[in-house]
């Protein structure tokens, strides 16, 4: 039988290895829809390996913070992804962290990234950091409202407990969960800087947020940042899949383990395709309209919580 420590180690290796591949699939889907050939699926891996081998070019006034931030960001994101049940609920670290811990870890990573953006003192880093802080101040309350909704219904903020609750017949068909899902998708788009909020493929100064903050990075630092960004995308997709689509999770035995692994791969693939289609079909928002979208996310989360009080079993 496979014990929790083995599953944990396997998951942590798997998320790190699968993350660039996920980014590759999203890019391939977008390229196909735009009738471009597009880079091969392994391009993100190649890019990270290439960056790792390259020399780091540091600005003269870069402090220790600028040099350590990339490693810390990757470490925090990786730590957050170690407590999300992706293909199995029997994780060794699962009791250590719940949704609030994950939100806090991602918030800490974002804080470090904003600090690193400010550190060099270029105007791009500053504008990126200030926009990131503006979006975060709205995305985080929305995330916490979603957590509250789920916690009231499932009686816990533990992801494995929530997933087990969602699989049980007690979950039923609740409108609050639909609202929470939409809100979580909005928050996830904002967290990852995907298209209506930010464009991950652009270097146009008027629109960029994430890219503006990491503009000064090069070499292995940039490799860490890119890997962390890919990992964060995988992590948010895994959270959504684990909460709202926990099919194939928590089955007993080795066969159940394989089913979990296969269904997780399938969920990631479907999510990547949906994200690609979504990004191709809409335009980026003006920066000053983003708070309205995030406000809608916050409102949906709040409404979900309120409606829960008149739903079944409460």
């Amino acid at each position: 039988m496979i014990g929790p420590p083995v599953i944990e180690a396997l998951q942590m290796a798997l998320v790190l290895l699968a993350a660039p591949g996920l980014v590759g699939i999203v890019r391939a889907v977008k390229a196909r829809l735009q009738r471009r050939e597009g880079p091969p699926l392994v391009q993100p891996y190649r890019q990270i390996l290439r960056l790792l081998a390259k020399e780091v070019v540091l600005a003269e006034n870069a402090s220790w913070l600028f040099r350590t931030a990339p490693y810390l960001i990757l470490a925090l994101t990786w730590a957050a992804s170690s407590v999300v049940p992706t293909f199995s609920t029997g994780l060794a670290f699962a009791p250590l962290g719940d949704l609030i811990v994950i939100t806090a870890l991602l918030g800490a990573a974002r804080f470090l990234l904003a600090l690193a953006g400010l550190d060099i003192g270029t105007s791009f880093g500053g504008i990126g950091a200030s926009r990131e802080a503006m979006f975060a101040s709205l995305a985080e309350p929305a995330m916490l409202m979603i957590v509250v909704t789920l916690a009231i219904a499932a009686g816990s903020t533990q992801l494995s407990t929530i997933a087990a609750f969602m699989l049980s017949p007690a979950a039923g068909l609740r409108f609050s969960f639909a609202l929470a899902l939409v809100a979580l998708v909005i928050v996830a788009l904002a967290e990852n800087g995907r298209i209506p909020i930010d464009n991950p493929a652009t270097h146009l100064e008027l629109t960029m947020v994430h890219e503006a903050m990491v503009l000064e990075y090069s070499g292995r630092h940039l490799a860490m940042i890119e890997l962390a960004a890919a990992l964060k995308l995988l992590l948010t997709i895994s959270i959504i899949a684990c909460i709202f689509f926990p099919f194939g999770l928590g089955l007993p035995g080795f066969a159940g383990f394989l089913v979990g692994l296969l269904s997780y791969a399938m969920k990631l693939g479907i999510a990547a395709i949906l994200l690609g289609v979504f990004e191709v079909s809409i335009a980026k928002m003006r920066v000053f309209r983003v708070p309205e979208l995030l406000g809608a996310g916050l409102m949906l989360g709040l409404l979900g919580t309120l409606l829960l009080y008149v739903s079944r079993g409460l």
């Binding site: 039923g172 068909l173 609740r174 409108f175 639909a178 409102m299 409606l307 739903s311 079944r312």
Partner: peptide, 25 residues
């Protein structure tokens, strides 16, 4: 209680949501 209640709840909730859309539009 059961699916009948859940669907009634969903439709009433959708009305509240549509009211918010009216408020926003």
């Amino acid at each position: 209680m059961g699916l009948g209640f859940d669907i009634a709840h969903m439709l009433a909730g959708l009305m509240v949501l549509a009211s918010f859309l009216l408020l926003y539009q």
